[in-house]
Computed example of a mutant assay.
Amino acid sequence: MSNLLLLFTCLFLGIVLQRINGFPKEAHLVLNSFIIYVCLPALTLLYTSEITFQYNQALPVLMPYILFVCSFLFFKLLAPVFKFDKSTTGALTITAGISSISFVGFPIFELLYGKEGLKMGILMSQAGSFVVCGTLGIMTATYYSSSEPSVKKILKNMFTFPPFLAFCVAVLFNFFDLHFSVFASDILQKIGSPFSVLALVSVGLQINFKRESFTQKPLLIGLFFKLFVAPLIIFLIYLILLDEKTWLGQMCIVGAGLGSMNTATIIAINHRLNPSLASLMVGIGIPLSLITTMIWYYFLNY
């Protein structure tokens, strides 16, 4: 549970730092750039190159893809109804469509499902949500941030996104059964290790808990999808349609209802997709998801 404590500590630290006179107002932009260009590529090379996939692991891997597609369709349909602009629609699609599997999910999966839950969580993160973030997330961010989106521009953004390039290299390593030496793995681990702390502090630097924030229609709708609709969709597909009444099926439902992924939020912010809304989706969504996922867990069991 130390990860959860660290999560709240980092968010709180970011909130405090933004109120200190003399602290750079644009510090989050520097942190975001360091995360994207240094930390994430290192972690992608380290973990994705070692993934081994088996048939019975398809459920946790596919869940993030299903979730993101549903998020895209959900907000695409609701945007004209609630008169959301492109910036708001893009921010909601990305933040509500990708769960924080690694930082929030890992301790929860281990707590609820033991070591096997943690192993499946790693697979769900590395082959699922992380790939979705670096591909579909970037494509969506480009689509909503550009006045004239094109396939060429979307592909250019994808293939100039450092974590995606690192993912391509890691896939080649995996395919040809190549491995990093112990020394190289240790270096990559140390380079990537500040990721979680820096990402959460960066989000905390952009959180503004004004009373009116809690009455924003886009935020309420985004949280409604993330915390209720998303796990309900996976529940209907996995437990009702596929009849997957196992702990693995339950874990996928819990994972779908976790708060928004930090990296997805950073991508939305860097593409100027309603930065304040994207930050609130993490800052408010993650604490609330700790409660709602427990409700889903006990509902599934009792």
Rank of each mutant, 00 (worst) to 15 (best):
F225Q: 01
T246Q: 09
Y37T: 05
R211S: 10
C133Q: 12
D177I: 14
F176M: 09
S146P: 08
P24I: 02
Y113V: 02
T44K: 11
D85E: 13
V203R: 06
S129T: 02
K190H: 15
F209G: 10
L46Y: 13
A127L: 14
F84Y: 14
S196I: 03
I101F: 08
K152A: 00
A96V: 04
V61C: 02
F299N: 11
G22T: 01
V229I: 15
I20P: 05
S181F: 09
S193F: 15
D177H: 15
I291K: 05
S125D: 14
K152R: 06
G22Y: 10
L273S: 03
Q250W: 10
P231N: 13
N274H: 14
P275V: 06
Y113Q: 02
S202Q: 11
Q126N: 14
S145M: 07
P162I: 05
L178G: 07
I187D: 00
S279A: 15
N174S: 11
T140M: 13
Y65M: 10
H179L: 11
G255C: 15
L300F: 14
I191Y: 05
Y302E: 02
S202K: 14
E212D: 06
A166M: 15
F84E: 06
S129W: 01
P218Q: 09
I98P: 03
A166Q: 15
V61S: 00
Q54C: 12
M294Q: 13
V182K: 10
L77Q: 08
M281A: 06
P231V: 05
L59D: 08
N208L: 05
P194N: 09
F74K: 11
A184T: 07
L136W: 02
N270G: 09
A256F: 12
T142Q: 03
S71W: 06
I269W: 09
A184E: 11
F103M: 09
E212N: 07
L172W: 14
K152H: 01
M281W: 08
F75T: 03
L4W: 14
P275S: 04
L288G: 04
L242Q: 10
L13E: 01
S125R: 04
F228D: 01
T44Y: 12
Q189K: 15
L277Y: 03
L7Q: 01
I221K: 05
R19K: 15
C70N: 10
L11P: 10
M1I: 00
Y143E: 04
A27F: 14
F180W: 15
E110Y: 14
L188W: 07
V171H: 12
Y113M: 05
L6S: 12
L43C: 11
F214W: 13
Y113W: 14
S49K: 13
Y298S: 06
G283R: 02
S99A: 11
F23I: 03
L7W: 07
F176V: 01
V30D: 01
Q189V: 11
M251T: 03
G283D: 02
T52G: 07
L178S: 10
C10S: 08
F214V: 04
L188P: 07
C70M: 12
S147Q: 13
G259F: 09
K210D: 03
L300I: 12
S49L: 15
C168D: 05
M294F: 15
G105I: 00
